[in-house]
Design a protein around this nucleic acid. Sequence first.
DNA 1: CTGAAAGCGCTTACAG
DNA 2: CTGAAAGCGCTTACAG
Lengths: 325, 325
Amino acid sequence: MISIREVARLAGVSPATVSRVMNGTAKVDEIKKQKVEKVILETGFKPNEAARTLYKKSAHLIGVIVPNIENPFFNEMAKAIENEAYERGYRLTLCSSNDDIEKEKNSIELLGRMNADGIILLTNEDEILEKTKDARIPVVVLDRTVKHKNEVASITSDNYEGGRISMEHMLESGCKNIVAMRGPQNVSSGRDRFKGYLDVCREQHIKEQYVDCSYDYEDGLVRTEEILKTFPEVDGIIAANDMAAISAYKVLRRHGKRVPEDVQLIGFDNIIMSRLMTPELTTVAQPIAEMGAKAAQVLIDHIEGKEVPQKNIFEVELIHRETTR
Amino acid sequence: MISIREVARLAGVSPATVSRVMNGTAKVDEIKKQKVEKVILETGFKPNEAARTLYKKSAHLIGVIVPNIENPFFNEMAKAIENEAYERGYRLTLCSSNDDIEKEKNSIELLGRMNADGIILLTNEDEILEKTKDARIPVVVLDRTVKHKNEVASITSDNYEGGRISMEHMLESGCKNIVAMRGPQNVSSGRDRFKGYLDVCREQHIKEQYVDCSYDYEDGLVRTEEILKTFPEVDGIIAANDMAAISAYKVLRRHGKRVPEDVQLIGFDNIIMSRLMTPELTTVAQPIAEMGAKAAQVLIDHIEGKEVPQKNIFEVELIHRETTR
DNA sequence: CTGAAAGCGCTTACAG
DNA sequence: CTGAAAGCGCTTACAG
């Protein structure tokens, strides 16, 4: 690999001048500038990022930490973050624990060693929070609210409103016997969605009916069985998220229930799969792409010294498709 | 951030000794060693990777280049690669073009600047091949055969056999009027699968029937409509891959066809979604996780100077689920 | 076994 | 506008 020194020699200037031409950091005599540019083109010279990083203490790198990259929701988020970060000249490294907290901690440590500029956290683990805290890197949290003061900002959607919308829609669709899956209560999305559901119940004097459920496919299977056993008269299921709704559909079909004729079904998130499945899933959409982009924007703005809003809440929207009337 | 020099000072040794303790690259007096380790622990010192990379000209970094990360197949592959690479102490950066060839080329250039150690290519673009060639980084190709001599090795599954298996299974399942989707003919997987199908047709004196189809969901929708129009008597569809099968199922249902009663359906790949959907998809499985792991192994072995097998072909397997009898 | 020194390839005060 | 010099934080011959 050719170095800046070599380029300088070929162009008859100093390395400093080559650097200035490359980065546009100072005025350079037009003749010399063109000469340097010519040499760079001819030699295919590419500056060594490690050297730059070493000097600047910034790798133009953002770490994204997700609980589980197999989950399409996180996957789509990561994609959105990546797009925005790329536009702004930052790269991404994705750290997924897959229930392996050690790996996740390692990743954060590595992020520090690699001179990462910031972290976007989609995880709720307190251990991870600790780690990010002493990594001394700015953190933006996505899909949950701020917990610690080292966290610069949070990006969420209006999960409470989403919870209300899904219940209201089930009611409007004529369900008489609705059962909700209560999502994980250790994350704000789970709590807020459920609270929205609950408030509608109270306002309409409907008795709440729910089972607990995580956001995973496997658990969705188990919990739907539980619903069918506990509430055999159920005619509407509010799933914890789209993934659980996909499980619910499968279990309903296995039990010979037609959707939406016998049981109506609504998800949450609007992951891509919700549209690919047949029947297409009615769901409450979070603007996943916009949220991811916003997270990247806010983090990078902060890295670059700008003021950023601490709270960023996105609106949700009912996507009426085929699993409800 | 504290540096190695500071650690050395606190431990009363030279930076060289600290380095030797950290890396275990030379014998160090036990007393000093313990002292250094103590200081490292207390200070939370983490070596700066940029400095290391600069000296070693290796970032322990592998680039994975996929045509489109939205495609679950590539996604699952990347996941598998990441797991294996992580075990071996390498990180990954994912480069996805999303039809943006400029972005992809930029990514490869960046890979070079970042002192990446190797590249795993899942793409077939000739322009990309050129770029990787002059990046002078070892390349392993996944899911297609070697084209250029700068490519160290290839990892594929037995697509030809898979093509045969799917056709044979449709026949055994009693289909009388089978239509195949011919996958993209510019990639070896598409060509080989189709050839397998074709050979079974010839051996059994069956007239071949097919439409062209890409590996995408959207195209799958269009092509299935085409099948239904051109071959209204169809009772078996061999999809180009699982994604196209998911589309096919949707279109079949829209036309009131029952699966598998009226039309049987088989996919290819065994992506996770094929099991999540309802009905669960019969498919020909490629061992995605093993293939990804192998790609990482072979590449890293090569980076580390070992001899590696040039051709690595994995067996495929029929996964009989609910869309065929 | 160990330290001083050189060097990896950049960038940026500093002096002119 | 421009170059010589110092420095970013490591690692590894080299000499002892």
